[in-house]
Nucleic acid binder design. Structure first.
Length: 252
DNA sequence: ACATGCGATGGTGGCGTAAT
DNA sequence: ATTACGCCACCATCGCATGT
């Protein structure tokens, strides 16, 4: 164990203000003054009271010891990969950015148990609205919408964008916009307006014709069926559903 | 203009534990 | 039980770059 003098010089070597200087502004009976070397009854009592309080807390299982930072670091890195940055984490956990940064970089070998608990409790779905995430999943959803027959203009309108084109970066998008696209995708793909492959519907239609059902009869059963009885490569989902329903009804 | 991520610096004092 | 102290987590604040 270092002597008091060695302790002081070690602190000064780290560029910190000497304990004596810090204690100078403290009133008599402050633990900091005790730490600076004052052994008057008041300061000695302050230190004893503090130690008693800590011992009691430790006995009650409220100790907050240092634990290895490995788990916290891995969790921060996983969150970062998911787009949760240090600032968002800092706000959500009440841990300063600098601390989170040091843990992530491996500059902290250990951290307090309470701090680790806060970090591990964080989930990737707590992303800030403005955080930037990989745009690939968002564009995959947009491509699916385009494939289903929805125009870029219609998609832009659905997202609340006024311009003629679709204003979204190909590389990174905000969490807010990614979520908007996801909701729009789910909404539009659930509508009867989306286009689907007509092959299964054409097969069902042919089966009905082979059974002897006349085109006029089928047109009465199915709204929007072409008079020619030939379907384009893609048809509205609503029409496909009607064909499937009519087939089920007429063949059971 | 605003929000966010990244990176850095200087400073404070809470904590566990060895010694008594 | 009390005294004493070394360790280092944690804080405050800044600047810069980038995307929306």
């Amino acid at each position: 164990m270092l002597t008091g003098t060695q302790h002081r010089s070690a602190i000064e070597a780290r560029g910190l203000r000497p304990i004596g200087e810090l204690a100078r502004n403290r009133p008599q009976g402050d633990r900091l003054r005790y730490m600076a070397g004052c052994r008057c009854p008041a300061c000695r009592g302050a230190n004893t009271a503090y130690e008693r309080m800590r011992a009691k807390a430790r006995k009650a299982g409220e100790a907050n010891p240092f634990v290895p930072a490995d788990a916290a670091r891995a969790h921060i890195q996983a969150l970062a990969a998911a787009g949760v940055g240090r600032r968002t984490l800092s706000i959500a956990t009440d841990i300063t950015e600098a601390t989170l940064w040091a843990i992530k970089r491996g500059e902290r070998a250990n951290l307090r148990r309470a701090t680790e608990k806060k970090i591990l409790a964080m989930r990737a779905d707590l992303l800030a609205d403005g955080a930037l995430v990989d745009a690939a999943p968002t564009w995959a959803l947009i491509d699916a919408l385009l494939k289903a027959g929805f125009t870029k203009k219609a998609i832009a309108r659905g997202l609340g964008q006024q311009g003629s084109g679709l204003q979204l970066s190909r590389t990174r998008v905000t969490v807010r916009n990614a979520e908007k696209v996801r909701r729009l995708h789910d909404k539009l793909m659930a509508t009867a307006e989306r286009l689907v492959d007509a092959t299964p519907s054409a097969a069902l239609l042919q089966e009905l014709l082979d059974e002897g059902y006349l085109p006029q009869r089928l047109q009465r059963e199915i709204d929007g069926l072409p008079e020619s009885m030939t379907l384009p490569k893609k048809i509205r989902a609503g029409l496909a559903d009607q064909i499937a329903e009519a087939h089920r009804r007429l063949t059971q």
